[in-house]
Design a protein around this nucleic acid. Structure first.
Lengths: 186, 186
DNA sequence: AAGATAAATTTCGAAGCTAAACAGTACACT
DNA sequence: AGTGTACTGTTTAGCTTCGAAATTTATCTT
């Protein structure tokens, strides 16, 4: 089960090899090869999330903020979305999204205004400051990512990208989309 | 920056290719190859976390519970640890760990007793029910993991495992251990 | 016009965390 | 022995964020 759910492993964390050995002791039918991949994936992602978290924190925004900024930028051009759309996208309730937008408006990352063409709706729009924060975060991230992959040749990279997308397709197919909010950082 | 921090992307999530294209539009100097790897890693991990979360939920335990169970099992043999040790390992304060242990004692996943050889300390010990829950979770996880990797040959698997551990070594070296609790699931 | 439907917000409460103060114990040093 | 110091774990108080349910406002249907 790799690292399976929970754990941050910051203190006296065992090495990957130690951990796999321990799992094998405690759980007989464990494929070490599979476990190695899964555990490495988990650990890698945790370290990446920590790094990203530091970067956004350095920019003075929370991970929650980041999620919203990203969704808005990905929506393209005028960078506008409705709260319920955002809520669905991020996997939380409209109520929670209202609260989150409140905070982000206060931080001047987004604006909120009624949609005059359909006054039931609300338009959340990225501010220039919000967009700037996103850009800064991207700049920091690319540095980190290039650093992370520095040992891999171009061929290694394409190979890795292909394998990962293959796995991704598999898991997305198995688990179409059914939402579940699990405190992800992705 | 891949998905960088936050996001769950459950609703009308763009495909990986769409997302990379969008990022390139919004952020000129982006290496698509790097982005593909990083985004795939992020998405893959999110899906895995969702899957693991469902499994533990099906067993009636929370992700918080899971973290503690895992640490205790990894500690080996008598499955005992002190609260502060656990707190360090999981990256939270001793106070938070006290609360968490309270809950887990109520759920009969662990026991708490004073260490009579050194009455300052407290011993948190896995119950048989706690161990059983861990085993069940492992069983569920191995099924999922084998399913995830079904398209990969044995050679693919060793290659992937090697590349991932290489990346992991890189990031662990760069970011030795400095703790940061970022709501990870690993 | 009257409901039905939908979007967003408000209110209330729960979960989980941290910081700070506190209590109990062990150990070192005189 | 006695005292100071350090450390462990718990308690308390407060904060942040989220969810559920009720509420408001606007639109659509018939």
């Amino acid at each position: 089960m790799g690292d399976t759910p929970g754990s941050t492993g910051i203190g006296g964390e065992p090495t990957l090899e130690e951990q796999i050995a321990a799992y094998q002791r405690e759980f007989q039918d464990l494929d070490p090869q599979v476990e190695k991949i899964v555990s490495a994936l988990s650990r890698l992602n945790r370290r990446m999330n920590v790094a990203y978290g530091r970067q956004t924190a350095a920019l003075g925004i929370s991970n929650a903020d980041w999620e919203v900024l990203k969704a808005l930028v990905l929506s393209g051009a005028p960078y506008r979305m409705g709260p319920s759309e955002l809520a669905k996208r991020l996997g939380l309730t409209p109520a929670a999204m209202t609260h989150r937008i409140d905070r982000m408006v206060a931080e001047d990352l987004v604006t909120r205004k009624r949609d005059e063409t359909n006054r039931v709706r609300v338009i959340v729009e990225l501010t220039t400051e919000g967009r700037e924060k996103w850009l800064e975060a991207m700049r920091l991230a690319t540095v980190f990512e290039e650093d992370l992959l520095q040992d891999l040749s171009a061929d290694d990279r394409t190979a890795l990208g292909d394998v990962l997308t293959r796995l991704l397709r598999r898991v997305e197919h198995a688990q179409p989309d059914a939402g579940g909010r699990l405190t992800d950082l992705d």
